[in-house]
Lab assay of single mutants.
Amino acid sequence: WIARINAAVRAYGLNYSTFINGLKKAGIELDRKILADMAVRDPQAFEQVVNKVKEALQV
């Protein structure tokens, strides 16, 4: 799951650890299995999560 998430978030200019930190700051409580599945099956929803994380990180 970690490898999938890392590959997906790198397309948005983040790395895995920064993304996970941003999830916590944004108050998003999705587990890694769901995030990895979302990255593959629903990229639009995953992009929305990434955008919320970037807002929380102020990137």
Rank of each mutant, 00 (worst) to 15 (best):
W1C: 15
I2A: 03
I2P: 06
I2D: 02
A3R: 11
A3H: 05
R4V: 15
R4Q: 14
N6W: 04
A8W: 04
A8P: 00
A8V: 03
R10C: 05
R10N: 08
Y12M: 03
L14N: 00
L14D: 00
L14V: 03
N15G: 06
N15Q: 06
Y16I: 03
Y16T: 03
Y16N: 01
Y16A: 09
T18M: 09
F19D: 00
I20F: 11
I20K: 09
N21K: 11
N21L: 14
N21P: 04
G22L: 03
K24V: 10
K24G: 11
K24A: 08
K24Q: 10
I28P: 02
I28C: 07
I28G: 05
E29Q: 09
E29L: 14
L30I: 14
L30T: 14
R32C: 14
R32E: 15
R32K: 12
R32F: 14
R32V: 15
K33R: 10
K33N: 07
K33G: 09
I34F: 12
I34H: 12
I34Q: 06
L35I: 14
A36K: 03
D37F: 13
M38F: 05
A39M: 10
A39D: 04
A39E: 02
A39H: 04
A39F: 07
A39Q: 02
V40T: 15
V40F: 13
V40H: 13
R41V: 13
R41H: 12
R41W: 10
D42K: 13
D42L: 10
D42H: 09
D42Y: 06
P43W: 06
P43S: 04
P43A: 07
Q44L: 11
Q44M: 12
Q44I: 14
Q44W: 15
A45M: 12
A45P: 02
A45Y: 10
F46A: 00
F46D: 00
E47G: 09
E47N: 07
E47T: 06
E47C: 05
Q48S: 11
Q48T: 06
Q48G: 10
V49T: 07
V49L: 11
V50Y: 02
N51D: 10
N51L: 13
K52C: 08
K52V: 09
K52H: 07
V53A: 13
V53W: 01
K54L: 11
K54V: 11
E55P: 02
E55K: 12
A56M: 07
L57A: 07
Q58Y: 10
V59L: 11
V59R: 05
